[in-house]
Simulated assay, not measured.
Amino acid sequence: MELDEAFRFIGSKGPLKVGWYHILLYALLVFYNCWIIGFQLMGMIFIGHVPKNYQCTPPDGFFTNDTTPVLDETTELDKCHMYEVQDGIVTQNITECLYGWDYERIIGETSIVTDFNLVCGDAIYAKIAQSVFMVGVLAGSVTSGQISDFFGRKIVLHIALVLKAVSGVIMALLWDYNALVASWFFVGVFNQAIQISSYVMMTEMFPPEIRTISTPLVSLIWGLAVSSVVPIALLFPNWRHYQIFISVICLIGVPLWWLTPESARWLISRGQIEEAEEILKKMAKFNGIKIPNSFLSDDKEIPLNEDIIEPSNKGHDGENEGEVHQQYYLLRAVTK
């Protein structure tokens, strides 16, 4: 039996001819692919957020307006310079910010910009940190597919989930800029590994006619997932709390390891036919379908249950064009 035909047979009783097992597994993989990934990718907007208004922190005993100069020919306050204070007197000497910055906070939000004062002359470092994260995403794109081809989709997906949780929590706890950027790189690597492996599993679990629906549907769900980033960021305005939250939820993959099957298509490509058959048997049992033993290596016909037989169309000569739907689900191609 060819694998796509096996999927058709196993899902012959379910909605859209895919079966409830596939639907539930698809929902889990979509959660990984859209929400887990979206929280991290779109979260960089909040993690690297630059406040609209900020001024130099004045020395003790003075207010911001006392020590902040006004830019020439404007009424805008200078964000990067201050009047120097000597012997308790504000002079007209302009210097760089000596005591840090005061940031406008609407709901108490923080970011790596406010934590490390990445403004004015150091503003480039916030962009560098975000770029390093995207370099990690690129590295994950290049390597994770090849690794999953060798070790399997399931193991790469779940290891990436655990490692992203660990590296994400470490990133949230770091107060050294260089160490934070390094950890953000690995977050990007593991984040993309989750996306690649989960998406590949989604494409490999359906026959071609269903795949044309299931894969574009991910793009629509992605929009919903991305829109949910905003309420999460409002709930956790401190970027460190936000990062810990979106990292810890990756650990949902640990208990689901035993419920998530390996890709049957990958197993067959590695010559592990019996293991693939065991997975398909579990799918069929969950969907209420009976299948014979060693069906992937057998060139045989498997009768359909009467309650799932579809009426066939009549040809011009009165003969049934779809006789196979009345009697058998003909499974001819032998898996090589």
Rank of each mutant, 00 (worst) to 15 (best):
E2N: 15
E2H: 08
L3P: 04
A6F: 05
G14K: 03
G14T: 11
G19E: 06
W20N: 02
L25A: 00
L25W: 04
C34V: 13
I37K: 13
I37C: 12
G38R: 02
L41I: 12
F46L: 08
I47S: 01
G48W: 02
H49W: 11
T57N: 08
P58S: 07
T64V: 13
L71C: 13
D72K: 15
D72T: 13
E73K: 12
D78N: 14
K79W: 07
K79I: 06
M82P: 00
M82G: 00
Q86C: 01
G88M: 03
T95F: 00
E96A: 12
E96D: 14
C97H: 03
G100Q: 13
G100R: 05
D102K: 08
Y103R: 00
G108Y: 03
I112W: 01
L118G: 09
V119R: 06
A126Y: 01
M134H: 15
V135T: 14
G136F: 09
G136Y: 02
V137K: 11
G140H: 07
T143H: 13
G145Q: 05
Q146H: 14
Q146F: 15
D149V: 03
F150V: 15
K154V: 06
I155N: 04
I159P: 03
A160H: 07
L161N: 05
V162K: 02
V162I: 15
K164H: 14
A165W: 05
V169A: 08
V169G: 08
D176R: 12
N178T: 13
N178S: 14
Q192T: 13
A193C: 07
P207L: 00
P208R: 07
E209K: 14
I210K: 07
T212M: 12
I213Y: 05
S214T: 12
P216Q: 04
L217G: 07
V218D: 00
S219F: 09
I221L: 10
I221N: 02
L224T: 09
A225T: 08
A225G: 12
S227D: 10
S227Q: 10
S228D: 01
P231R: 10
F236R: 04
N238Y: 10
W239R: 02
R240P: 01
F245G: 06
S247V: 04
C250T: 03
C250N: 09
L251N: 05
I252E: 01
P255C: 03
W257C: 00
W257Q: 02
W257F: 09
W257V: 01
P261W: 00
E262T: 03
E262Q: 06
E262C: 05
W266V: 00
L267G: 00
L267Q: 06
S269P: 03
S269A: 12
E274R: 10
E275H: 11
E277P: 06
E278C: 11
M283N: 01
A284S: 10
F286P: 00
F286V: 06
N287I: 06
N293S: 11
S294V: 02
F295K: 06
L296F: 11
L296A: 05
K300D: 14
D307V: 09
E310D: 04
N313P: 09
N313F: 09
G315V: 12
G315W: 12
H316A: 15
H316E: 15
H316W: 15
D317K: 13
N320R: 14
G322R: 10
G322P: 02
V324M: 07
V324C: 05
H325I: 12
H325D: 15
Q326E: 15
Q326H: 12
Y328I: 15
L330F: 11
K336H: 14
